[in-house]
Amino acid sequence: MPFWFELIVSLLLLGGGAFILLGSLGLVRMPDFYTRMHAPTKATTLGMWGLLVGALLLSSWNSGVLSMNQLLIAVFLLLTTPVSTHMLAKGALHHRLEWDKNTQGQEHAKRFMDDQ
């Protein structure tokens, strides 16, 4: 395997791992539930994409044919992560979960809570 190819794959894998780690770090660090949701949706999705593209390149190289099935997981995640986060946020609003004290525009959220 040539060095440049190994470098690309390594960078993709490392970047993916770093973003997944960042997503989990956000889960630990953020002050309230609504801010906490941001980290796993965005960072983890990008991290998975990096990891899966790296895996795709590496396994294609190893087997000699273009193996595209990792792309299936990537697209699936891209479609489902926003849906599950939206459902979670809706559920949290429904449960009238507390938010951070200095959140702006709380009246918008309250109006939506009363709508349900």
Binding site: T45, T81, V83, A89
Partner: peptide, 13 residues
């Protein structure tokens, strides 16, 4: 979904 995946915003309801 697009809003949820892009800069600093998340659709909630």
């Amino acid at each position: 979904s697009t809003i949820s995946l892009t800069p600093g915003t998340l659709s909630a309801d």
